[in-house]
C-alpha cells in the first residue's frame, strides 16, 4: 500500500516540477521574443543624433532629447518627493503607531491604494496640483502625481523591510539605554536599508513607464526644448513612444523601438543599482 502512495506522491512531485519549469520559461521566452524583436528593429536607429535631437515630422531626423530630459527630471523630483514621505509613513506605522483599529483601517487602505489604476491618479493630480495649486502642466505637477502613485509601493516595501528586522536588535538597543528614535535611526533603518532601497527602485521603475496619468495632468507630446526648471512644461519617453507607434509611417515605428531600448536601458540601470546595493548592504544575523 505505502508503495503505491509513494509512487503517486512522486508522480505529483515531478509533474509539478515540470509545470513550474514551463511557467518559468514561458515568461522568460516572452521577454526574450519581445527584447529581440525590439532590438532587431531599433538598435540601428540609436545614435548620438537620435539622443540629442528634438521631435520632428521627418522620422530620420526625429530624436528624443526633450523626452529623455523630461523623464530624468521626473525621476529625480518624483524620488525626492516620494522617498521621504513614504519612508516616514512606514516608520510611523511600524514603529510608533499603536496597533489599533484605526491603524488596521489605514493599513488596508494603503494596500488598496497600490492597486488603484494610474489614470485615476492622473485625474487627482490634474485637480489638486494642476488646478488648485496652480502648477499647470509642469514637471512639478507630473512628479507629484507620480509620487502619489508610487507612495503605497514604497510604504508597503519599507514596512516589510522593517518587519524583517529581528526584535532582538531593538531590545538590545533599548538595553543600552537608547531612546525610541535613536533605536529607529541607528538600528532599525540601517538593518532594513537593503529592503527599503529595493522597494524604492522598484517604485521608481514603475513611475518611469507611466504615460497615461501624465497626459491627463497635461504633459505634452511635442516639446522642442529641454526643460530648465521644475515649473517648465515637459514630455516623457513613454508619451513619445506612444505617439510614434500610432503614426502611419513605418519609419516612426523604428524610432519607437529605439526609444523603447533607451527606456529599457534606464530601467535596467536602476534595477542593476538595486541589486548592487542589496548585495552590498544585506546584513546577516
Amino acid at each position: 500500500m505505502s508503495n503505491r502512495f509513494e509512487k503517486i506522491a512522486r508522480l505529483k512531485d515531478s509533474s509539478f516540477k515540470i509545470f513550474g519549469m514551463f511557467c518559468t520559461f514561458f515568461g522568460l521566452a516572452m521577454l526574450a521574443i519581445f527584447i529581440s524583436s525590439i532590438f532587431s528593429e531599433g538598435i540601428s536607429r540609436i545614435s548620438w543624433d537620435f539622443i540629442t535631437s528634438y521631435p520632428s515630422r521627418n522620422p530620420a531626423k526625429a530624436g528624443i532629447l526633450s523626452a529623455l530630459a523630461g523623464t530624468l527630471w521626473i525621476i529625480v523630483i518624483t524620488a525626492l518627493a516620494a522617498i521621504p514621505i513614504g519612508i516616514g509613513a512606514a516608520i510611523y506605522l511600524e514603529e510608533f503607531s499603536k496597533k489599533s483599529r484605526l491603524g488596521k483601517i489605514i493599513e488596508i487602505n494603503i494596500t488598496n491604494l497600490a492597486g488603484v489604476p494610474s489614470i485615476i491618479y492622473g485625474l487627482l493630480g490634474l485637480e489638486i496640483f494642476g488646478r488648485m495649486m496652480g502648477m499647470g502642466g509642469s514637471i512639478l505637477a507630473g512628479s507629484f502625481t507620480l509620487a502619489l502613485l508610487i507612495l503605497p509601493i514604497i510604504i508597503v516595501a519599507t514596512r516589510e523591510a522593517i518587519k524583517a528586522v529581528p526584535s532582538s536588535l531593538r531590545e538590545a538597543s533599548y538595553a543600552l539605554g537608547a531612546s525610541k528614535w535613536q533605536t529607529v535611526k541607528s538600528t532599525v533603518i540601517p538593518s532594513a536599508s537593503s529592503g527599503i532601497i529595493t522597494g524604492i527602485i522598484i517604485a521608481i521603475s514603475r513611475a518611469i513607464g507611466e504615460a497615461a496619468p501624465l497626459i491627463v495632468v497635461g504633459a505634452l507630446a511635442y516639446v522642442p526644448f529641454v526643460p530648465n526648471s521644475p515649473t517648465s512644461e515637459f514630455t516623457v519617453l513613454p508619451i513619445q513612444i506612444f505617439n510614434w507607434v500610432s503614426r502611419p509611417q513605418a519609419a516612426f515605428l523604428v524610432n519607437a523601438s529605439a526609444g523603447i531600448i533607451i527606456l529599457l536601458g534606464i530601467t535596467f540601470l536602476l534595477n542593476a543599482a538595486a541589486v548592487y546595493l542589496r548585495i552590498k548592504r544585506t546584513v546577516k544575523y
Binding site: 530630459a69 530624468l72 525621476i75 529625480v76 524620488a79 532601497i197 527602485i201
Partner: peptide, 12 residues
Amino acid sequence: ILAVGTTLFASC
C-alpha cells in the same frame, strides 16, 4: 541613488 540620476541627467 540621486547620484546615478544626476549623472544620467548630465550625460543627456
